[in-house]
C-alpha cells in the first residue's frame, strides 16, 4: 500500500473542495472496496478524504412519495429500513443477496454504486493486461479465463462485469443519483450512472472525479407487490453473481400493466432490458410471456470461451424471477 494523506471532513461542500484540490484524491466511506484495492495496489490514491462524518446517513420519505437513501446510510440499515422493506422489497432483497453481514454493516449506499469490477485481471496487478487498470495494456480476460465475464454490452477493450446486486435493483426501480460537484448539485438517472466499457473501460461511471454522491432517490413505485431478486452464484452466500435478475411486475389481475427487468453479472453495468419489459406489457402473466421476455433480454449476447452458460442461465433465471414476482411460483 502506498503512503497517503488522510483528511476528515464534516460538510459535503468541504468534501468537494478537498477533492477538487488534489488530483489523486478519493473519498473514503465504508472502505470495503477501496481499502481492499489499495492493499492490492490496484488503487493508489495519494489523498483520502474521509466522508464518514458527513450528514448523509438518513433514509427519508420524499414529498413526491419516493424515498431518499442517504449516500452514507449503510447497506444493512438500508435493507432493513421499514420503508425500503415495504415499498421496495426488491431493493432489500438485492442488498441482502450481496456480500456478507459484516461487509454490509460497513458498506455505504454511495460506495456500493462505485464498486469496481471483480475481474481477476483487474484485481491482480501481477497480470500484465487490463485496460481498466492500465489503459492500453490490453484485456487479459478476453483470451484468458472468462467464466465470470460479460455477455452483453462488452467491447474488445474490456469484458468486465459490474459486481453490485444493489445497483441491479436500483436500475430496475429507476432510481436517481443526486450528486454534488464544484458547480452544484445534479441528478443522474441510474441507467446513465454506469457506463459500458467501449474504448474507455477505465471509466466505470459518469460521475465526475470531483463529484460526491449525496443520495439515491427512489421514485414512488407500483412494483412493491410483485417483485423478486434472484441471484445465481457458485455457493449459497458470499459470492458474486454469475447472473442476477431484478424482476418487477405491475399487475392488473392476470394482465401485465408494467414490467421492470434488470440483470446483474452479465455486463459492465446493471443491464436493464427495456425490450424485455416491452415484451411483457399487455401480456397475461405466465410462462409464455416470461420466456419471450427472457429471449429479448439476452438479444445480442456475445459469449467467450468459459461463459457461454450465462446465456442459458440468464434466460432461465429471468423466467424464474418473473414467475416468483408474478406470484406463480
Amino acid at each position: 500500500m502506498n503512503p497517503f494523506e488522510y483528511q476528515r471532513v464534516d460538510q459535503s461542500q468541504k468534501a468537494v473542495n478537498a477533492i477538487v484540490r488534489s488530483k489523486q484524491a478519493k473519498f473514503l466511506a465504508g472502505g470495503t472496496n477501496l481499502i481492499d484495492l489499495m492493499k492490492l495496489e490496484v488503487e493508489r490514491p495519494a489523498h483520502l478524504v474521509d466522508i464518514n462524518h458527513l450528514p448523509l446517513s438518513n433514509i427519508e420519505q420524499l414529498p413526491n412519495g419516493g424515498l431518499r437513501l442517504g449516500a452514507l446510510a449503510r447497506n444493512s440499515d438500508t435493507a432493513d429500513h421499514p420503508l425500503v422493506r415495504k415499498n421496495y422489497p426488491l431493493l432489500s432483497q438485492a442488498i441482502l443477496a450481496g456480500a456478507s453481514p459484516q461487509l454490509r454493516n460497513m458498506a455505504t449506499n454511495g460506495g456500493n454504486l462505485l464498486q469496481r469490477t471483480r475481474c481477476y485481471y483487474f484485481m491482480d496487478i501481477g497480470f500484465p493486461q487490463c485496460n481498466k487498470r492500465a489503459p492500453g495494456s490490453g484485456c487479459g480476460a478476453i483470451e484468458g479465463f472468462n467464466r465470470i465475464h460479460a455477455i452483453l454490452g462488452a467491447s474488445d477493450q474490456c469484458i468486465a462485469t459490474h459486481p453490485s446486486d444493489m445497483c441491479v435493483a436500483l436500475t430496475a426501480l429507476e432510481a436517481q443519483v443526486r450528486v454534488l460537484g464544484p458547480r452544484g448539485e445534479r441528478m443522474i438517472a441510474m441507467k446513465d450512472f454506469h457506463r459500458l466499457p467501449g474504448n474507455t473501460p477505465q471509466m466505470d461511471t459518469n460521475l465526475n472525479p470531483d463529484e460526491l454522491i449525496l443520495s439515491i432517490d427512489l421514485p414512488s413505485s407500483p412494483y412493491a407487490a410483485h417483485s423478486h431478486y434472484l441471484k445465481m452464484r457458485d455457493r449459497a452466500s458470499y459470492a458474486f453473481a454469475l447472473v442476477s435478475v431484478a424482476a418487477a411486475l405491475d399487475l392488473d389481475g392476470d394482465n401485465i400493466r408494467g414490467a421492470r427487468l434488470a440483470l446483474g453479472g452479465v455486463a459492465h453495468k446493471p443491464w436493464r432490458s427495456e425490450e424485455a419489459e416491452a415484451a411483457l406489457v399487455g401480456k397475461p402473466v405466465g410462462p409464455e410471456a416470461f420466456a419471450a421476455a427472457a429471449e429479448q433480454a439476452v438479444q445480442g449476447a456475445k459469449t467467450y470461451k468459459h461463459n457461454a452458460f450465462k446465456v442459458v442461465m440468464a434466460k432461465r433465471s429471468i423466467v424464474r424471477a418473473l414467475t416468483v414476482a408474478g406470484g406463480r411460483a
Binding site: Y120, Y121, M123, D124, F127, G140, E143, G144, F145
Partner: peptide, 13 residues
Amino acid sequence: HVDPHTGRIANAN
C-alpha cells in the same frame, strides 16, 4: 483457475 497464458492463479483469494 490457472490463467492459460500467464500461469497465474486467477482466483487467488
